[in-house]
Amino acid sequence: MRVARRRFVAAGAGAFMVALFRGVGAQSDEKAIPVIARKFVFLPNQITLERGEPVVLEFTAPEVVMGFNVPALKLRTDIVPGQVARLRLVPEQEGTFDFLCDVFCGDGHEGMSGHLIVVARAA
C-alpha cells in the first residue's frame, strides 16, 4: 500500500496524496463521500473538499460501467456495477478541478462531468 501511495503522490505532481482502493472500508479518520455514477450524471457533480482533510470517495454505478477521471490530477478509477470503487486522498492544493466519465456509456456520456473543489480548511 505504501508503494501505491508513493506512486500516486508522484503522479499527482504533489497536488494530492492519493491511494486507490477497491473493496476496502473507509478508515475512521477519513471523511467518506458517496458518489453515484448513473446515466448521465455524477451525484453529486460538485464535490467540495477541504485542503489537508483526508477523504475517501466511494463510487457506485447502478447501471453500467462508468469511469471517474480528474485529468489534471492524473486520478481515475473504473466504477463497476455491484462494486464500490474507492479513491482515498488528501487534497493539498486549493482550486477547481474538472472531472468526467471517461468510459463511454451512451447518448449523454459527453455531458457527464463535474468539479472537484478544494477550499481552505475551516479554522
Binding site: P71, A72, L100, D102, H109, E110, S113
Partner: peptide, 12 residues
C-alpha cells in the same frame, strides 16, 4: 495525443 482529456479528447 492528449488534446483535451478533460473533454475526453484523448486515447488512454
Amino acid at each position: 495525443f492528449d488534446l483535451a482529456p478533460q473533454w475526453d479528447w484523448a486515447t488512454r
